[in-house]
């Protein structure tokens, strides 16, 4: 790791101020991606502004069916929230399978979505749930937030402080883990609203990061059932190929994970 300067923020305002004062700085939350990246000398922020202990960025609140998750809330806390489990078990389940127990104790939802790793789990949930990403200065719809591989709509120095979404009638997530890294080689999050709207987001498979799959959405809108996907085709041309899985296999996984996500959602 290159030399860096560590600052601990006490509030959102403090964090933004510290970040503005820094040169090539970065916010540090759980650090579960950033610190390994810095260890490999693939990132070299001059300053780190630690937001893990900012009180107003922590915790889960529920009002009616509106869920708000502070950006510094750990995966463990999301996974073990009974309120959340009652409203949207799919996101609890998703959080409970991110990384491993130690990673879940440190890693946060805000860190995950701000990083927008193409194999991360949360971006698919945010996109499928039509979540709103709240920052220190504005609110961004998930559909506008994730813009490419490790790319988001965040401006320089902008800090994700929370996410909110309306709990859907049904949601399900299924991940096919990379055998080595255990990141999503393909993960599919499906959501069905009371009004019949369906959104399906795919992570781990797209060569440009998380994306919605219109064909699957259309099929599931017509019939909310795993069988509805029998005749859907997934085009491999925009999917990733690597030493673990080629695009053809990933295309198959998108369909299979989508089917299983619907089955899981129906079972809840």
């Amino acid at each position: 790791m290159y030399e860096t300067h560590y600052h601990r923020a006490s509030s959102i305002q403090d964090a933004v101020k510290l970040r503005q004062a820094a040169g090539e700085g970065k916010y540090l939350s759980g650090g579960m991606t950033l610190i390994p990246t810095m260890k490999q000398r693939l990132a070299a922020p001059s300053d780190l502004v630690d937001v893990r202990q900012v009180p107003e960025m922590k915790g889960i609140s529920v009002s009616g069916r509106t869920v708000r998750i502070g950006a510094a809330t750990t995966h463990f806390d999301v996974a073990s929230s009974s309120e959340l489990a009652a409203l949207c078990p799919a996101i609890s389940g998703l959080a409970s399978h991110i990384g491993d127990p130690h990673v879940r104790h440190m890693g946060t939802i805000g860190g995950s979505i701000a990083n927008n790793d193409p194999a991360a789990d949360y971006p698919s949930a945010m996109l499928a749930l039509d979540a709103t990403i709240i920052t220190d200065r504005r609110e961004i719809a998930a559909g506008d937030f994730f813009t490419g591989l490790f790319e988001t709509a965040l401006e320089d120095g902008e800090l994700v402080t929370a996410v909110t979404f309306e709990a859907p009638a049904k949601a399900g997530y299924q991940k096919f883990a990379n055998p080595a890294s255990r990141y999503a080689m393909t993960g599919v999050f499906v959501v069905r609203r009371d009004n019949g709207d369906v959104r399906v987001a795919v992570t781990g498979a797209g060569s440009n990061g998380v994306f919605r799959h219109e064909g699957i959405e259309a099929a599931l809108s017509a019939q909310w059932s795993p069988d509805a996907l029998a005749n859907v085709t997934v085009d491999p041309s925009d999917l990733l190929s690597d030493i673990h899985a080629d695009a053809t296999y990933r295309a198959n996984l998108v369909k299979v994970m989508a089917k299983r996500a619907v089955a899981a959602a129906r079972a809840d």
Binding site: P179, A180, S181, Y183, I243, H244
Partner: peptide
């Protein structure tokens, strides 16, 4: 396959 990210 130079790390546990790629060597299973």
């Amino acid at each position: 396959t130079a790390s546990y990210m790629d060597y299973a």
